[in-house]
Nucleic acid binder design. Structure first.
Length: 148
DNA sequence: GCCAACGTTGGC
DNA sequence: GCCAACGTTGGC
C-alpha cells in the first residue's frame, strides 16, 4: 500500500490510536477492488512511501478489518469527497490496517529494481501506478529481510 | 462508443 | 517543479 509521507507517513501510523488507521481516500477502481475482494483480515502488507525523498518500503502492516464503505467519500468537507458516492450507494471502500514493523532502513525503489528476485513485482512494471497492489509471499519475505 | 481534454500519479 | 503515463469525464 502506497502513501505519500507528506499526507500520511509510517510515523503518522505509529502515532495513531492503537497504531491502526483506516486507509481512506482510494479513488481508483482497481485499487478499490483489491481491497474489497482480495484483502482479508490477517493479510500482511508492505507500507510504501511514494513521491518523496526516500522512495521505498518502510515497514509492514496487517489488515485488521474486512473492507467497508469509505465514509470520506460522502463528506463534502473531505478532500476525498465524491458526489457520486452516498451512504446508500457507496462507491469507495477501505480496510483498517495496523502497524506491524518498522524497517531499520527503507528498502529503496532503486534497490528493488536492482534485485532480480523482485523483478516480477507490479510496482516496477512500466506504467503501473496503482496505490494498492498484490505482492507474493516470497517478495514480501525478501523485502522484509532486506529491510533488517 | 469514441476520443479529446483534463486531472492525477509519482519518479526524477 | 517537470513531465510521461495513466485514468476519468463528458460532448458528440
Amino acid at each position: 500500500m502506497k502513501s505519500e509521507p507528506s499526507a500520511f507517513s509510517i510515523d503518522d501510523l505509529e502515532k495513531s490510536e492503537n497504531m491502526t488507521t483506516h486507509w481512506d481516500g482510494i479513488r481508483n477502481y482497481q485499487a478499490r477492488n483489491f481491497m474489497r475482494d482480495d484483502m482479508k483480515i490477517g493479510d500482511q502488507v508492505l507500507f510504501y512511501h511514494s513521491n518523496c525523498k526516500e522512495v521505498g518500503v518502510v515497514g509492514t502492516m496487517e489488515v485488521v478489518s474486512e473492507s467497508y464503505p469509505d465514509h470520506t467519500s460522502w463528506d463534502e468537507k473531505s478532500k476525498y469527497y465524491d458526489p457520486k458516492s452516498t451512504p446508500d450507494n457507496p462507491r469507495w471502500m477501505m480496510v483498517d490496517v495496523k502497524l506491524k514493523s518498522r524497517f531499520n532502513h527503507p528498502v529503496l525503489l532503486k534497490k528493488i529494481k536492482d534485485t532480480s528476485d523482485l523483478s516480477g513485482m507490479m510496482l516496477i512494471r512500466k506504467g503501473v501506478r496503482l496505490s494498492i497492489q498484490p505482492v507474493t509471499s516470497s517478495e514480501f519475505n525478501l523485502i522484509v529481510k532486506m529491510g533488517k
